[in-house]
Write a protein that binds this DNA or RNA. Structure first.
Lengths: 210, 210
DNA sequence: TAGATTGTTAATCGATTAACAATC
DNA sequence: TAGATTGTTAATCGATTAACAATC
């Protein structure tokens, strides 16, 4: 039995970029695109696009390129975006409320179905149409709501503890807005959204002539 | 003359992570740390930490490790964080206002000094203590304010046009919140903050058993 | 001094790119 | 058919890791 190496994570992370560009092209009425043209658009080499796609199947036609509608559907299916995902938001402060109100999730199939906080003064209130639950009830409430993904928007000092409890409740995917690098078991995916860290690596290039 | 290869970008992007962990350790009163201990904390190999740091200098002591205060100061200096950076926010909708009000930038040395929008109904209003300028006046106003970094929070459809104009005004670093991959000259750094893209690569691992 | 840990070189690993036969 | 472009293999490139002499 051959060892299943799997698809490199860096490849999986590029697929949503392809998806977005293709969706945009489709809206413009374009029906077919070559790896060369898509590469020009995204500033990656055509070889990389073809190699990336080849991990998953053969989606193109020689001499012609890729049918955009078909490739879109294939990528959506590969990424698991042909279904709706139920999301819980933990930490309903200023940032958590902005996340709940952000209109960009729902059209992409991410439905925020419940909200949690551990501050008794906030629990029981409503935010963006959702009742705020006590975080200590996460496992029960999130389980009942079929939550598969958690968004963490708590203060840095609380982030690790919250993530430990999410892991304990069986959550396997966390979008972390807390400015803290956190640890989780290898089978739990964490993506950090951290504008300050993003800025801090750009200033390196702004300082002096580099 | 040897070709100056420069520091790999992936190394520069790890430095803020080191910085954050070290700042946290310092607050806990810890004064010295080995690459082994820091690696355990961040889940990277000690060899990687030593190699990364070696691009910039020799900051440790054999047999002992790194003096945290000193390493922090060195990293801050390397990243250009021993100065304040002036930031402009472009696009003052719901998201732009949340960014202006986000309390995490100022303590890290990123000062939001001006705000822009191109909607005449919004220009002239105030948001978070800043008057909203017409984006057509960006070059003049941002120049006068000494802006070095722009944050883009406009709709996807407007993002490329806005970034073109920022580049034209001499901006070399853009933090892009618009859900769109954008192009810019090689000497202009762009970092994308895009929670939907982050979610879309996690769902791959959630679908089926991978 | 003995023990620990750095800084750096060399080996390994994995990702990207180039090249081209297959084929639309 | 001639031209274009895929899918895939092999070559290249670059990043990570292991190993260890130097040295605190």
């Amino acid at each position: 039995m051959a060892t299943q190496t799997g698809v490199p994570e860096v490849v999986v992370e590029r697929l949503p970029q392809y998806l977005r560009a293709l969706a945009h092209l489709k809206e413009s009425g374009i029906e077919v695109i070559s790896s060369q043209q898509l590469g020009d658009l995204l500033q990656v080499t055509p070889a990389q696009i073809r190699k990336d796609l080849s991990y998953f199947g053969r989606f193109g036609k020689q001499g012609r390129g890729y049918a955009i509608s078909n490739l879109l559907a294939q990528l959506r299916s590969i990424l698991g975006l042909d279904q709706t995902w139920n999301v819980a938001v933990v930490g309903i402060g200023r940032l958590g409320r902005a996340i709940i109100s952000y209109p960009g999730f729902e059209p992409e199939g991410f439905r925020i179905v419940c909200a949690f906080d551990s501050d008794k003064a906030v629990v029981g209130q409503w935010a963006g149409g959702l009742m705020i639950h006590d975080f200590s009830t996460f496992k029960k409430v999130a389980g009942a709501e079929g939550v598969q993904i958690a968004v963490v928007a708590v203060p840095a000092a609380a982030a690790q503890d919250v993530i430990d409890q999410l892991v304990d409740a069986g959550i396997k995917a966390v979008l972390n807005y807390a400015p803290k690098s956190t640890l989780a078991p290898a089978d739990v995916r964490i993506r950090n959204v951290d504008p300050v860290v993003a800025l801090q690596s750009m200033t390196y290039y702004l300082s002096a002539a580099r």
